[in-house]
Computed example of a mutant assay.
Amino acid sequence: MRFHTRKWIKPQDLNPNGTLFGGRLLEWIDEECALYSIVQLENPKTVTKYMSEIDFKSSAHQGDIVEIGIEVSKFGSASLTLKCEVRNKMTRETIITIDKIVMVALGEDGKPKPHGKTEIEYVKDRLK
């Protein structure tokens, strides 16, 4: 799994128990998956269609640094299916896993639009 983004847990990210608020973490995951998919599919109109069971394994605290990992598991005709793991950067302890996140590329009409992609592309390879 490739870890793309790091987040520093600040006071505004905490729940009443003093640990990372799950909703904040899901917001970060959703944004990271959207950005990753938009770049991969080369379509700024890419949206989240589905997230499977979310498995919280541990918590994070103020001052912790977490990193978000994403891995492509499938290319559909208009979609991209991802796996996600968030872990504590310093301890490498897993905080959350999501086995299936489906992102869909949309056309101007707001309906799924085939993207023609079958494998991961890196920006550096597109620029050659």
Rank of each mutant, 00 (worst) to 15 (best):
M1R: 08
R6I: 15
R6H: 11
K7I: 15
Q12F: 12
P16K: 07
N17Q: 14
G18N: 08
T19L: 05
T19C: 05
G22R: 05
G22C: 05
R24L: 10
L25R: 07
L26Y: 02
E27K: 10
W28E: 05
I29W: 00
E32G: 07
Y36H: 11
S37D: 06
Q40T: 13
Q40K: 11
N43H: 04
T46C: 04
E53L: 13
D55T: 09
D55Q: 14
F56G: 09
F56H: 06
F56V: 08
S59Q: 14
A60D: 09
Q62Y: 08
I65M: 13
E71D: 15
V72P: 04
V72L: 02
S73T: 14
K74W: 06
F75W: 04
G76H: 00
A78D: 03
A78S: 15
R87L: 14
R87F: 06
E93T: 09
E93S: 10
I95Q: 04
T97M: 05
I98T: 01
K100G: 00
K100W: 03
M103R: 13
V104N: 00
L106K: 00
D109M: 02
D109L: 03
G110V: 00
G110A: 03
K111F: 11
K117V: 00
Y122H: 13
K124L: 14
D125R: 04
K128L: 10
